[in-house]
Simulated assay, not measured.
Amino acid sequence: MIDEARRCAANPGTFVKVRWASLVEEGNLKVATMADVARLAGVSRSTVSYVLSGTRPISGETRERILAAMKDLDYTPNALAQGLAGRRTGIIALIFPLSEIGFNLTEFEYIRGASEQAREDGYHLLLWPFGAGEIDEVRKVVNQGLVEGVVLMEVLTSDERVNFLLEADIPFTTIGRTADPHELAYVDTDFEASGSMAVEHVARLGHTEIGFLARNQTDLDAGHGPVVRTRDAVLAAAKKLGIRAHVFTASPTFPAGWDAFDNIMATAPGLTALLELNEPATLGLMAAAAERGIKIPRDLSIVAVNASEGAAQMTRPALTSVSPSHSDLARLAVKYLVRRLRGEDYSAFHTLVIPELIERGSTAVAPS
């Protein structure tokens, strides 16, 4: 590629147009990034950065080739990539997909913690409610240069948004992690520990047949980190303890939870404990149980995984939970991002938080 670029140095615009046309034919056309410019011009990404910032001398031939690539790719350098005279926007973004009913109390704890920490560190927080499948929207906003960095939530085990942010060379941290997070700065709950702790708790109470209520099957299929890790941990812990475990799914809505109750009872009539990672549906399920004369925890114990204090206290009885401090998680993710923006090495920015089991009243000894 570099040799080809050198041969075309006398006419860099022609070289760029030929290479850009080949990319279009290969189906790789997208919103251009600094990495695209570097690849098209046959140079390193740092060389493109030096041309943009003027921090190092670059030969006229190379500079012209890079500028021609930028023009033909319609690349607009963002504020981070330019680094002109230390210019900054003072804005960081929190990418947090909206659920079917908006944000619940637990999700709001993350947003509040991130917002408070950003403000304390001298930044404004911009909320981007983009889902994992809306990668083009993420590309558009990032390439406009509105933000200095990003905190990404609801991370999938294989997440295209993470790949894009790495390629775009924009500082970011994640609340959650991919299957292979070694290149990431992240903060996450240890959902493997959450699932194991929840199973061990109900096992100590004598429950031998349990269920796990996850969000819809789409989340499981997509590899939503918290749901997949918790489900796998529940099944593994149940097998180890000789407990029979069932997995159920429901959309994260009150009506879906109401409808799920009858399905759960019909599928597993001997079930006496339910672990859940589906806050809205659990409210509907508990209402349906009360309607049918099932008392909690006398007839059915419930453990909420990853529920905030506010969410756990919304029901009567209040829900026993296995959870971290969501506000603290979000604060730490923002702190890591700010430290990245200040030029610190992020290789050690990896924190896995062990949750806490809090008994409140929704679990009891298994019925005899």
Rank of each mutant, 00 (worst) to 15 (best):
R6Q: 09
R6M: 07
R6S: 01
R7S: 04
R7E: 08
R7N: 07
C8D: 10
C8M: 12
A9F: 03
A9W: 04
A9N: 08
A9E: 11
A10S: 10
N11K: 14
P12R: 10
P12K: 06
G13A: 07
G13S: 10
G13P: 09
F15T: 04
F15E: 05
V16E: 12
V16T: 14
V16Q: 13
K17H: 11
K17T: 12
V18N: 14
V18E: 15
V18Y: 13
R19V: 13
R19Y: 05
W20S: 13
A21G: 11
A21P: 10
A21R: 14
S22G: 07
S22H: 11
L23W: 15
V24P: 01
V24K: 15
V24E: 15
V24M: 11
V24C: 13
V24Y: 09
E25N: 14
E25K: 15
E26N: 12
E26P: 06
E26S: 15
E26K: 15
E26Q: 15
E26H: 12
G27R: 13
G27Y: 11
G27P: 15
G27N: 13
N28T: 14
N28M: 10
N28K: 14
N28V: 12
N28E: 14
L29K: 14
K30P: 01
K30D: 12
V31T: 14
V31D: 09
A32C: 08
A32E: 11
T33Y: 08
T33H: 11
M34I: 15
M34Q: 13
A35Y: 12
A35P: 13
A35H: 12
D36V: 04
D36G: 07
D36P: 07
D36F: 10
D36T: 07
V37M: 06
A38C: 09
A38M: 05
A38T: 10
R39W: 04
L40K: 04
L40F: 01
A41C: 09
A41H: 05
A41F: 07
A41D: 08
G42C: 03
V43I: 01
V43T: 08
V43P: 10
V43D: 06
V43A: 01
S44D: 06
S44P: 02
S44Y: 07
S44V: 02
R45K: 11
R45Y: 00
R45D: 01
S46Q: 12
T47I: 01
V48M: 02
V48T: 07
V48H: 04
V48Q: 03
S49C: 02
S49Y: 10
S49Q: 02
S49N: 07
S49R: 08
Y50F: 06
Y50Q: 09
Y50M: 02
L52A: 04
S53Y: 03
S53G: 11
S53L: 03
G54L: 05
G54M: 04
G54I: 06
R56C: 02
P57K: 02
P57F: 00
I58W: 01
I58R: 00
S59W: 00
S59T: 12
S59G: 07
S59M: 01
G60L: 09
G60P: 01
G60Y: 00
E61H: 02
T62L: 02
T62W: 00
T62V: 01
R63I: 00
E64R: 09
E64F: 00
R65I: 00
